[in-house]
Amino acid sequence: MDQFNSFIANANLLEVSYLGDQYTWCNNNAGPKRIWLRLDRLLTNLARSLAYPNLKLVYKPRILSDHCPLVAINHEPTRFPRNFKFCKQWIQDEDFPSIISRS
Score class of each variant (00 low, 15 high):
K60Y: 14
A51T: 04
R62G: 14
N54H: 05
Q89Y: 02
P32E: 09
N29F: 04
L55N: 05
E76I: 11
I100P: 05
L14P: 01
V16G: 07
L19Q: 06
L46W: 08
P81S: 06
I91A: 06
N5R: 03
V16E: 10
P77S: 12
P61R: 15
Y23D: 13
G20H: 14
I8H: 00
Q3S: 01
C87N: 03
P32S: 13
P81A: 11
R38Q: 05
N5L: 03
R38M: 04
K60I: 15
G31D: 08
Q92N: 06
R62L: 15
N54M: 06
R62K: 15
D2Q: 01
C87W: 08
I100N: 09
R102K: 07
I91P: 00
P81D: 05
N45E: 08
R102H: 07
K60N: 14
I100Q: 10
L64W: 15
S6L: 02
V16F: 12
Q3A: 01
V16Q: 08
N74L: 14
R41D: 02
S103P: 01
F84E: 09
N83L: 08
P81K: 06
I99H: 07
N5K: 02
V71S: 04
I73F: 14
L14M: 11
T44L: 05
F4H: 01
L46M: 10
N12I: 03
V58F: 14
I99A: 12
L55K: 07
F84C: 07
F4G: 01
D66A: 07
N5C: 02
I8D: 00
Q92G: 05
R48Y: 04
W36C: 07
P53R: 13
Q92W: 10
E94H: 11
L14G: 04
N10Q: 03
A47F: 11
D93Q: 12
R34H: 09
P81R: 08
S6M: 02
K56E: 03
H75R: 10
Q89M: 03
D95T: 12
D66C: 05
I100H: 11
L19P: 02
P61M: 15
R48E: 05
F7H: 01
L46D: 09
R82P: 00
D21H: 15
I100M: 13
D93E: 10
L42E: 03
I8P: 00
N27D: 11
A30K: 06
F7G: 01
R34P: 02
W90R: 01
D66W: 04
Q3P: 00
L14D: 05
D40L: 04
